[in-house]
Amino acid sequence: MIRDSASGRRRPHSVVAAAVCVVLLLVAAVALRHFVAQPFRVPSASMEPVLAPGDVILADRSERGTAHRGAIVVFDGSGYFAPSAADGDRYWVKRVIGVGGDHVQCCTSAGELTVNGDPLEEPYLPVGTVPSEIDFDLVVPEGRMFVLGDNRGDSTDSRHLLGAPGGGMIPVERVVGEVDRRVWPLPRAGAL
């Protein structure tokens, strides 16, 4: 401690003040990541052209544990999409196609997916991509979601796990957050 000559009071040492600032910044960063937004790096081409490998996205943590049709979400796929978190494939990013109670079917005579009998408009699919080469007709159980990658020809998603435990349906409670922004690379940064 250093004494202030004018008042005779002690001033905190600059090292102590810097340490307090660093601790406060770390606490703020952890709080932001846990309660506001969490960054993730896109590992594969399964969500192209919207998301490319290497993109860094932010998952809105206020949306954790929720899912609605059309949203891009990050979820914990351990035990559903990956045998274990040790495989490095714990978190997945996919588009929600159906939620609890939805009847999802592929495909109509025109080659479209339907949700509750209505054709699903999918402007995000790459040009020339068919909605699915795997036929399915299912009802999503309550509390679960049916997810697909936008790059259907290069995506492991709910379609591929229909016979696996959970039937490819992910518990909504596993949603880490809804993806609303890409932050890297800078030329592609912005809201989705």
Rank of each mutant, 00 (worst) to 15 (best):
M1L: 08
I2F: 09
S7I: 04
R9E: 15
R9S: 09
R10Q: 11
R10C: 10
R11W: 12
P12V: 14
S14G: 15
V16R: 13
A18H: 13
A18Q: 13
A19G: 15
V20C: 14
V20T: 10
V20E: 11
V22H: 04
L24D: 02
L24R: 06
L25V: 14
L25H: 04
L25I: 13
V27W: 05
A28N: 01
A29D: 09
A29P: 01
L32S: 15
R33V: 12
V36M: 11
Q38C: 01
R41E: 09
V42S: 07
P43F: 09
S44G: 14
S44F: 11
E48R: 02
E48I: 01
L51T: 01
P53R: 12
P53Q: 08
P53E: 12
G54I: 02
V56L: 05
R61F: 12
S62L: 15
E63R: 15
G65C: 13
G65W: 14
T66K: 14
A67G: 09
R69G: 07
G70E: 12
G70V: 11
A71P: 03
I72E: 14
V73C: 02
V74L: 06
F75D: 07
F75C: 10
G77I: 09
G77M: 06
G79M: 09
F81N: 06
P83D: 14
A85F: 00
A85M: 01
D87M: 12
D87T: 15
G88V: 07
G88F: 09
D89L: 15
R95Q: 15
I97A: 04
G101C: 05
D102S: 12
C106S: 03
T108G: 03
G111H: 03
E112I: 00
L113Q: 05
V115E: 03
N116Y: 10
D118R: 15
E122A: 03
Y124M: 09
L125D: 00
L125K: 10
P126M: 06
P126C: 04
T129Y: 01
S132T: 13
I134E: 11
D137Q: 09
V140Q: 08
P141E: 06
R144D: 03
F146R: 01
V147L: 15
G149R: 02
G149H: 11
N151Q: 15
N151Y: 12
G153P: 00
D157E: 07
H160Y: 12
H160K: 09
H160F: 12
H160P: 04
L161G: 06
P165D: 13
G166K: 02
G166P: 06
G166N: 01
V172C: 05
R174P: 00
V176N: 07
V176Q: 03
G177N: 10
V179I: 11
V179Q: 08
R181I: 15
R182T: 14
R182K: 10
W184C: 01
W184M: 12
A189W: 10
A189P: 08
G190F: 05
A191N: 06
